[in-house]
Amino acid sequence: MTKKKIHVVGAVIENDLGEILCAQRPEGKNLALKWEFPGGKIEADESPEDALKRELIEEMALDITIEDKITTTTHEYDFGIVELTTYFSKIKSGTVELLEHVQMKWLPAADIDTLDWAPADIPAIKIIKEKKGNRIEN
């Protein structure tokens, strides 16, 4: 049987200190308690950017500005094949409210790989560390 392909987007939100917002998935859902970049499924007739803005309002009550695309990765899970596109983002307005996640952390880019991430997010983490993680030493 062919697995369902799920198109999702994730926001790599950076604050003024250069820290990245990391969010922990709830228990009882796929990838329970794994860390991820907030975001979600792209609905029919929705652009990735529109989906990401909608999901951040739904999950965290945040209005975001979407910046550069980081990467698109595909990972096969037992529940389907996830195609994840991540974007650097900034908070335009709002304060983080955990409407979907159980926990969040702001971490320096150099430290984000210390969490137990959902596998689809890991390629983006490597790119983020390369782009942002060395900024202080330079």
Score class of each variant (00 low, 15 high):
Thr2Glu: 13
Lys4Arg: 14
Lys4Pro: 00
Val8His: 00
Gly10Asn: 05
Asn15Thr: 07
Asp16His: 12
Asp16Glu: 14
Ala23Val: 14
Ala23Pro: 00
Arg25His: 10
Arg25Asp: 02
Arg25Gln: 12
Pro26Leu: 00
Glu27Ala: 15
Gly28Ile: 09
Lys29Ser: 06
Leu31Pro: 00
Leu31Tyr: 03
Ala32Met: 07
Ala32Tyr: 00
Leu33Trp: 03
Leu33Lys: 13
Trp35Leu: 04
Phe37Lys: 02
Phe37Leu: 11
Pro38Arg: 07
Gly40Arg: 04
Lys41Arg: 12
Ile42Arg: 01
Glu43Cys: 04
Ala44Leu: 05
Ser47Arg: 00
Ser47Asp: 02
Ser47Gly: 02
Glu49Tyr: 04
Ala51Met: 07
Leu52Trp: 00
Leu56Ala: 06
Leu56Gln: 02
Met60Leu: 15
Met60Tyr: 01
Ala61Lys: 08
Ala61Pro: 01
Ile64Trp: 06
Ile66Glu: 06
Asp68Asn: 13
Thr71Cys: 14
Thr72Trp: 05
Thr72Leu: 04
Thr73Arg: 03
Thr74Ala: 13
Tyr77Lys: 09
Tyr77Leu: 08
Asp78Cys: 08
Asp78Leu: 10
Phe79Asp: 07
Ile81Cys: 08
Glu83Phe: 05
Leu84Tyr: 03
Thr85His: 08
Lys90Pro: 02
Ile91Phe: 10
Ser93His: 11
Ser93Ile: 02
Gly94Thr: 09
Thr95Trp: 01
Leu99Thr: 05
Leu99Asp: 07
Leu99His: 13
Glu100Arg: 15
His101Pro: 02
Lys105Cys: 10
Ala109Asp: 06
Ala109Val: 09
Ala109Pro: 06
Ala110Ser: 15
Asp111Ser: 15
Asp113Cys: 10
Thr114Glu: 14
Asp116Thr: 10
Trp117His: 12
Trp117Pro: 09
Ala120Gln: 12
Pro123Lys: 07
Pro123Asn: 11
Ile127Asn: 03
Ile128Ser: 09
Lys129Pro: 06
Glu130Val: 12
Glu130Ser: 15
Lys131Gln: 13
Arg135His: 11
Ile136Lys: 12
